[in-house]
Design a protein around this nucleic acid. Sequence first.
RNA 1: GGCCCCUUGGUCAAGCGGCUAAGACGACGCCCUCUCACGGCGUAAUCAUGGGUUCGAUUCCCGUAGGGGUCACCA
Length: 563
Amino acid sequence: MDYNKLAELLFPNVTDTCEDIENKYPPRNLPEGAKVTRFAPSPTGFIHLGGIYGAMIDERLAHQSGGIFYLRIEDTDAKREVPGAAVELIKTLAEYGMEFDEGAAISPDGEICDKGIYGPFKQSERAHIYHVYAKKLVSEGKAYPVFTTQEELDELNATDKKAEVKSKVWTEEAANAQREEMLKQREFTIDEVEAHLKAGDPFVLRILSEGDGEKKTKVGDLVRGALELPENDEDFVLLKSDGIPTYHFAHAIDDHLMGTTHVIRGEEWLPSLPKHLQLFKYLGFKMPKYLHTAQIMKLDENGNKKKLSKRDMGLDMKDYKRGGYLPECVCEYIMTILNSNYDEWRMQNPEKSYKEFPFSFKKMSNSGCLLDFAKLTDVSKNVISRLTADEVYAKLLPWAEEYDPEFAAVLSADKEKAIRILSIGRGGKKPRKDLATFADAKPYMSLFYNEYFAVIDAYPEKFDNQTVRSAIEGFLQTFDFSDDMNTWFDKIKALADSMGFASDMKAYKAQPDSFKGNVADISSFIRVAVTGKLSSPDMYEVMQVLGKDTVVARINSEIARLS
RNA sequence: GGCCCCUUGGUCAAGCGGCUAAGACGACGCCCUCUCACGGCGUAAUCAUGGGUUCGAUUCCCGUAGGGGUCACCA
């Protein structure tokens, strides 16, 4: 077989050589040890938690080493592409603090554009590059075409391939038949190829695999160590019939030309690693280092770990946004599952950015972890508790504007007040941690606003209305808004004493029977009247924020109700 | 089914031949306290299993089981 002739037949329009391409993309001039990583999503839908997880590893590894972090859009599957998804992807990544040095970006007019000299960064725009290498492989007898008719192709496109693959019964006979079919396709003549081309039949380009599927080769993985994998024995597709490459082919060429040093991807790619080994060998490219990450899982109804699926809460980043989770909280949580010594570091360095943490892939776990909302909540509370009231307000307002406009209106009507509310118990060594998400804000803050205020909790049952009423009446009689906290509370204690309640908790605990109740009970009457609830932040501070008139009005309203 | 990956408390995990097997989240209890938070202290809870190797295995090797992934002109 004259492979050069075959190559010429298949790619008559390709005149560039591989050298021409290589010259256009010179090796990067980076300091020793600098890592070049990429995040390479396909624009087939929303970005998910696993995506952010992977992107954060890419970002840390690159920027921690003084390297380059870039974004490549893997839009090689026109059928699955979702319009506008790429733009959405980039925006979401930006929200999560993923800043790319190079790659696909959004231009001022809202279109995808390229940043840096190694583009184009959309694979659909790189067809000519792939074809140059494809032609070379054909000319060396390392790849060959398989023709189909247009009808067969249409039929292929009509099938739900994923469902078909899933339902497939993997018997030995089926495997053998598949292999025989593959081998048969290797047999053809130049004349046949010419005839097909003349008839306009589309073709795919397949690699001519070398391995026998038995012999093992060793591959290194940054988190898994040495792996033993069988050599590739599959003539997988390089170019689809539309001339666009498959992931495998695009991966080898792009990561080579763009100078990627570290490929970080999910462990679902592990089984296709032999394909990539084969390709890099055929192409004469230097292998990048691989890091296959464990998946983030959930528990299914049978109690088994399962990969997060589209229907699950917690996969789509929009879920987090809607739920009021701050991106920095999610990132903080991801850091805790990325490196288990992160928690410890955070305790020592409460004010630092996570980007100052010495992240190491050596500390990454190689088994999948369960998405743990309890942990996320804890981490989020900590992150938000470290913010100032102004910062919380600045982030809360836009969230509310999108998901609860009415609440947003209330918040912005009196910014000063909102910030005073958010300031309660904030700052200092032991800040309150009331907010894990912005969705917690309204229930927490509602007692401060008359439009939301309601007496929700009942007064403690063991006291009759008469007692409650005289207590809050008594409070009102001596209430002076300008009192400081101690004076204010001393008055409550005095009130307790005058009503036969213990003002000293220790005294009460020693002899509970000699009192009608204690000062905490008195406080709870006032608390329910003023806040509507049995629990609230520090009541003195609450009253200071509410203002004298509101406090008096609420108590009077309760006095009336209890009469 | 073939191939590959994984396996320490409920969860995330430290460990890298000898430890009473860290720590965090969660749970529970106590303390602090005018409530709720916060904080402090404490309790319960883990090496999947069988065989080796070894004076000694959570740690090394082999098998088994369980879980996950993958076997497309999808990425």
